[in-house]
């Protein structure tokens, strides 16, 4: 039975007849693998969980623009520069699709922005690592976007309609992101000794953080079971991590590079990939705001918002003037 928060918890712990009916309808839709739409009744805990997940996802896309935008002016060729700009523009678009989906749950855009900029909201911890070299653009595309795709493909079937639909659009656009990253690394792997070293160094730094993008191990992820019961999540953190590490273990061979994990092997008996112990203390520290780039990323986001204020004000002023002249 799905846990629900009574609407008027203070008044009565016993749900009314209407609430029970609504809950039964909701449970039936989930059971049938149907979708919940914005104006349907839903348990408060479902609404809250989704608002948090979808808005964190949106924040991650928006903050995720920064490490790559940082390299646009230093891209090694006009082609790479055009590709990187298209990718960063996609991340902005993905953020906007997701904010729209989050808003259908009842929290206005300003409030969501405010949660991010005031530091109350979380976003993917991977973006709190610096992008030090051009090869990082390759490693981010291949590993970070690769992990994101592995996570996002099952979300296309998430039980909340607007979220699933946003994810379908995002996944379609995301596939080029991973390929362009892989091809950056491929070009470097065929280059000079220094370029190969740069590529390997980027892989070494992003391997572990990208595996941690799937979240804590299943036994330490208390909310996962509920999210799976609600069919927001379809696979557990460890299952998805498994799938991903298996894919990159093969792909890295094409690059002629190695993953920094001597323990990595496919276990024939269990049919599972074994990887090294991940540093979850570091993960928790970065999530809590103590990563190398947390304060920088948030400050940059606030700065962009401040610097864009005059554009928003001018557009609003123009809209008001136009509206008045229409009426007159």
């Amino acid at each position: 039975m799905a846990a629900t928060t009574p609407q008027n918890a203070g008044l009565s712990a016993v749900p009314s007849y209407e609430q029970e009916q609504s809950q039964a309808r909701f449970d039936a839709l989930i059971e049938q693998d149907s979708r919940i739409e914005p104006r349907d009744w839903m348990p408060e805990a479902y609404r809250k969980t989704l608002t948090r997940q979808v808005s964190q996802h949106a924040h991650s896309e928006i903050i995720g623009m920064q490490p790559e935008a940082n390299w646009i002016t230093r891209a090694p060729s006009l082609k790479r520069k055009s590709i990187l700009m298209a990718k960063v523009q996609d991340e902005a678009g993905h953020g906007l699709y997701l904010y729209s989906a989050a808003e259908t749950l009842g929290t206005p855009r300003d409030e969501l922005n405010d949660q991010l900029m005031s530091g109350r909201a979380k976003y993917s911890s991977i973006f709190n690592y610096p992008a030090r070299s051009w090869a990082d653009m390759g490693a981010i595309g291949w590993l970070v976007d690769g992990a994101a795709i592995a996570n996002q493909v099952p979300l296309c079937r998430a039980s909340y309609g607007p979220y699933g639909r946003a994810m379908v659009r995002i996944c379609k656009e995301e596939s080029f992101h991973q390929r362009q990253g892989f091809e950056i690394l491929l070009a470097l792997s065929r280059g000079t000794e220094a370029q190969r070293k740069m590529a390997q160094d980027a892989i070494n730094r992003f391997y572990e953080p990208s595996l941690m993008m799937f979240g804590p191990p299943d036994e330490q992820s208390p909310n996962s079971a509920q999210s799976m019961a609600w069919k927001i999540k379809r696979f557990s953190n460890d299952e998805l991590r498994q799938r991903f590490v298996g894919m990159i273990a093969e792909q890295v061979k094409v690059l002629g590079m190695t993953l920094p994990d001597p323990e990595l092997r496919f276990d024939e008996e269990t049919g599972r990939w074994i990887h090294k112990e991940l540093n979850w203390d570091e993960f928790m520290a970065v999530i809590k705001g103590n990563g190398p780039m947390n304060s920088h990323r948030l400050e940059r986001r606030r700065e962009a918002h401040r610097e864009g204020a005059w554009v928003r004000e001018a557009a609003a002023a123009y809209a008001r003037k136009y509206e008045n002249s229409e009426v007159a």
């Binding site: 729209s100 808003e103 946003a166 659009r169 928003r312 557009a315 123009y318 809209a319």
Partner: peptide, 10 residues
């Protein structure tokens, strides 16, 4: 989908 904009043209 949907979006926010100040006026119809934008």
């Amino acid at each position: 989908g949907s979006l926010h904009a100040p006026d119809a043209e934008m």
